[in-house]
Structure formats: C-alpha cells, structure tokens
C-alpha cells in the first residue's frame, strides 16, 4: 500500500530539521497550523515571529531579518502570498534577500473552501521575478529535502505545497538525487514525455500506466523546480520522445506548461500539450472531484499524450 502524505507536512518537518541552525527563523501570518510551521513555533517560540493576519508586513519583516543575517522561512496560504506580491518583488527579490516563502494549500486540489482559496496563479506570478527560485514538489519526502536545501541558498524562493494527501514517491530514495533545479525521471519511456509538478505527478504516473496498457511508453518527469527550469532534461525528452505533455494544478497560463513552452521555442522543438486549469476559477469540491472538473486527472493526461503523439 502506497503511503499517503501531504507536502505541507514535509515542509513542517524540514523546519524542525533546520532548527539546529540558529539563524533559521520562522514567520507566520496566523496559518501556522495549516502550513505546518506550528511544529517549529512550539519547539522554538523565540525564533518564530507572529505577524498576525498581515502578509505584506510578514514578507518585509523577513527581508529585514535576511538583511541582518537570518534565514527566514515565511508561510501562509498560496493564495495570500499573492497579496504580498509587490513586497516580494520590490522588498525581497530586487535586493536579492534570501527570504523563503511557502504557499500552502495551492491549486484547485485544496478543495472545498472553493475558488477564493484555490490559487491557480502563484507559480506564474513568482516565476516572473528575477532572482526567485520557484518550487512545487510532489510528495512530503521531496518537500522536506528541497526545503532543507533552500536554507543553503543565497537567493529568495517561492515553494508551493498542497493541503491534501498524495502518494509518497520518494520513500527510500537517496536524498542526493533530489536537487533544486534538477527534474527527476520517475518512469522511462520513449513515445511521449509527461512533465509534471506537484499533485499531478502521481496523476501522471497513473496516466502512464493506462498508456502502457495501450502500448504507449510514456516518460514521467517530476519537474519540482519550475525556475530555474531543467532545460537539459527537457531537451533529452524532446530527443528521445519527440512529444511533450505538461501537467499542473495551475492555470495553463504562466506555470510549468509555459515554462516548458518558453524553453521549447528557443531550443529543440516538439509538439506540446498542456494539461492545466483551463483559465477559469474553481468551486467547492473534494480534491479528486476538482481534478476531474478542472480536466487535470489522469484521463485528461492520457488524452493529451495521445494528441501530442499524433502531432509528431
């Protein structure tokens, strides 16, 4: 039985793991119970700064602390990070201060709160900022490892985590194989490459199983880092498979699909089909229901793969 876990739990665990470094501090905006920074707060209240329900202030308190030698990890819901976009732009990214922002409950997968809580733009907006690394890991193990790696970087980051549990893919994997900026080939194929991030990585693996039954060998890539994009791996997939599908729980505009498209047009080209939220807002629904409503679930990835292959 596959272990199920939420990526936000991996984030919370990583903060605890990082606590041995006295320079690591945690910033909260009244959602620590949800983003899972609460474990750090309970263990290290003196290094946790409550910013109340004030995301704009939180980002810049982080900037001031980063400029003073600290390593701030700030979290809130993905949707509310967008409220502080200009603070991230002007106060964090522009002076290149290593504030690490985590947006939990990202995507329509977050479920029944409905469209007001379902961020479908966060990856796009933060990807436009110079100096900012953008991550969206797919399971709690990789989230934990990537979060810990962020503490050693000298530039800011945005990481999206998810509210709901998804299959754990990296139990018993060598942590060295999980590096910022390096996509991971989870399944090797040569007919089509499915490049996915976050909760759609496990959906893509399901899609690959379906395709296999139909005689189509799909490669599945966990592209946990959207920026900087692992262009070398994309190039390899183009050469080997000649057809690409991207899959993300995010608007088709601006996210992983766009990042891959931007790479393809400037390099070796292949037909690309993008599975993503079809430029519309969500609604209340269970996580699995939302993946179907938004045309993100495995069957849509299967259809996109066949279409990409037909365009070769």
């Amino acid at each position: 039985m596959t272990r199920m876990a939420a990526t936000r739990d991996g984030y919370g665990q990583a903060l605890l793991d990082l606590a041995d470094n006295p320079k690591v501090v945690v910033l909260e905006a009244d959602l620590g119970k949800s983003t899972k920074s609460l474990h750090f707060r309970k263990a290290h209240p003196e290094r946790t700064v409550s910013c109340g329900i004030g995301e704009q202030n939180m980002l810049l308190v982080g900037a001031g602390m980063a400029a003073s030698g600290y390593i701030p990890f700030a979290s809130t819901f993905a949707i509310f990070t967008e409220r502080a976009f200009e603070q991230m732009r002007n106060g964090v990214a522009r002076p290149n201060l290593a504030v690490h922002l985590c947006g939990s409950h990202g995507g329509t997968h977050t479920g029944t709160d409905g469209s007001s809580a379902q961020s479908i733009e966060d990856l796009a907006v933060f990807r436009t900022l110079p100096n900012v690394t953008v991550l969206h890991p797919c399971d709690d193990v990789s989230t934990r490892i990537l979060t810990m790696r962020l503490a050693d970087t000298k530039s800011p980051s945005y990481m999206r985590t998810a509210r709901n549990k998804t299959p754990v893919l990296y139990d018993d994997v060598d942590p060295e194989s999980i590096q910022i900026g390096k996509g991971i080939e989870l399944k090797a194929g040569n007919d089509v490459a499915i490049i996915a991030c976050g909760v759609l990585v496990s959906e893509s693996l399901k899609a690959a199983d379906v395709l296999k039954q139909e005689g189509i060998n799909a490669s599945v890539i966990d592209m946990h880092t959207l920026k900087p994009l692992d262009g070398q791996l994309v190039d390899q997939m183009v050469e080997r498979c000649g057809a690409i599908v991207t899959a993300e729980d995010h608007n088709v505009i601006g996210g992983l699909g766009s990042a891959v498209a931007e790479h393809l047009v400037a390099n070796k080209f292949a037909p690309l089909e993008m599975v993503g939220v079809p430029d519309r807002f969500g609604e209340s629904g269970q996580a699995d229901e939302m993946l179907d409503v938004m045309k993100l679930s495995a069957k849509y990835i299967v259809a996109a793969a066949k279409k990409a292959i037909s365009r070769k």
Binding site: V49, N57, L59, L60, V61, A63, G64, M65, A67, S68
Partner: peptide, 10 residues
C-alpha cells in the same frame, strides 16, 4: 516592516 525585521534580528 523592513525596519521591524531589522529590530527583531537585533
């Protein structure tokens, strides 16, 4: 806000 971060770090 930035000043608050500097003061907190101090």
């Amino acid at each position: 806000s930035f000043g608050m971060g500097c003061a907190t770090a101090a």
